[in-house]
Nucleic acid binder design. Structure first.
Lengths: 238, 238
DNA sequence: TAGTGGTCTAGACCACCCG
DNA sequence: GGGTGGTCTAGACCACTAC
């Protein structure tokens, strides 16, 4: 592997593992050239790729910093539902409907794409936007990747908020569809069974390790998903 | 603007304008260093950003080539519906329901984000997957950006296929939601009014120029949208 | 104002692989 | 074999901005 590839990988792992948390100031280019015994260009190449990937922010004179919990960085955002609702100008609240802990069943393993069984947390949470039932969050969390979740009650912060703000991820998969509300969800969302809903399934990983699977069910017309995409927005870096 | 930014922009425009078509071999790094009177690193930086953007492919000894009609390159693909259906193992057919040409109305301009009126084509097309009504495509095309569309009947190829294969784009915006089928679409899709549908609005541009607006309406359960996303897939270039 | 990143140079060696 | 891109160096000057 190339030297700048090695530098990139090592720094990336420092970030994704949490050793270098959001806001952390990483060593300056000069310090890295010393550490890796290479020229500034080589270090710079690695760091700039990490900027493009959304893991770093760099400021002259200040240094290079790990970005805040990488929320979106790009295309399909992974938002904190609380922020979404507040952004709509509505009051937000959430209600934990259930919280279970268990060894993963076969269904769990399939949903999360786990390759071997392990302890998980299963939470169900209702999100409200003003008086409207906004979203049902049905989430599995892999306790091997996110051990902190074992002692988190999710009553103060919703699972959505907690995950966004505590857990970094390196890849995600979304599956989006329309669906008629099931009896169960219709009751939870105070809508008629069969009412159209937008359903988003999302899996996230750090490296090869599954973190969480979440199914978000929104009554139609309460939520739209936005995705901007510019492959050519390489915006010559000002 | 920086020099490599200028080089990047000029080459990008050569590609997006079609002057350098897919497969075209662009000048070598050496030729570009002569043309821009700069060092190889500077040219290289620009070219490698274009590789990341998916506009170029580079091969040792062979040279740098414009990629084939950039379909997805990443996250939210812009598929040819024909390929989608065939990929599901079903027979594909399409039927043009209407084709109109007009000067853009205020609604058209709003839909396409045009800032001044101009000639457009409005097509409506039904896509079938086997015996199932798969999707209604409701599309506006800006004739100023896509003059060829004026003399295209869209009977042999569906608008979706034609656009994907003929028109390059540089940025796209998706809006995705669930919706109850309108009376009109229910008839077209052979479903009951109120049946849940997945609706995707998509706008595409080349540079600042709007190309097309399309609304795709799928009956629930006939289609799911997939989106993979790895910000950290910066894969140290082999 | 000093330290940081942004940019650029003029070389160099190497791996690849088309012809 | 020779031209291509991939990588790297050891400098350099500049712009920005936090301190």
């Amino acid at each position: 592997m190339s030297l700048h590839g090695k530098i990139l990988t090592e720094i990336e792992q420092n970030i994704l593992s949490g050793r270098w948390p959001p806001g952390y100031r990483i060593p300056s280019e000069m310090e890295l050239t010393v550490h890796y015994e290479c020229s500034r260009m080589t270090v710079s190449k690695a760091l700039n790729k990490l900027v493009q990937a959304g893991l770093l922010e760099r400021k002259r004179k200040a240094g290079s910093f790990v970005t805040r919990p990488h929320t979106s960085s790009a295309v399909l955002e992974i938002p904190d539902l609380r922020q979404v609702v507040l952004g709509m100008g509505l009051e937000y609240s959430s209600q934990l409907l259930s919280r279970k802990q268990r060894r993963s069943t076969r269904d769990d393993m399939e949903a999360m794409r786990m390759d071997k069984p392990g302890p998980i947390v299963h939470v169900l949470c209702l999100h409200m936007a003003g008086q409207r039932h906004f979203c049902i969050e049905d989430r599995l969390i892999n306790l091997e990747s996110v051990p902190d979740a074992e002692h988190e009650s999710f009553t103060e912060h919703s699972p959505s908020s907690w995950m966004v703000n505590h857990v970094p991820w390196s890849s995600a998969e979304h599956r989006i569809r329309a669906e008629a509300a099931s009896e169960e969800n219709a009751t939870r969302l105070a809508i008629a069974p069969g009412f159209p809903c937008l359903v988003i399934d999302r899996r996230t990983w750090t490296g090869q390790l599954p973190i969480t699977f979440v199914r978000l069910t929104y009554p139609a017309d309460l939520y739209e998903l936005d995705a901007h995409f510019s492959p050519s927005t390489i915006a010559p870096a000002t």
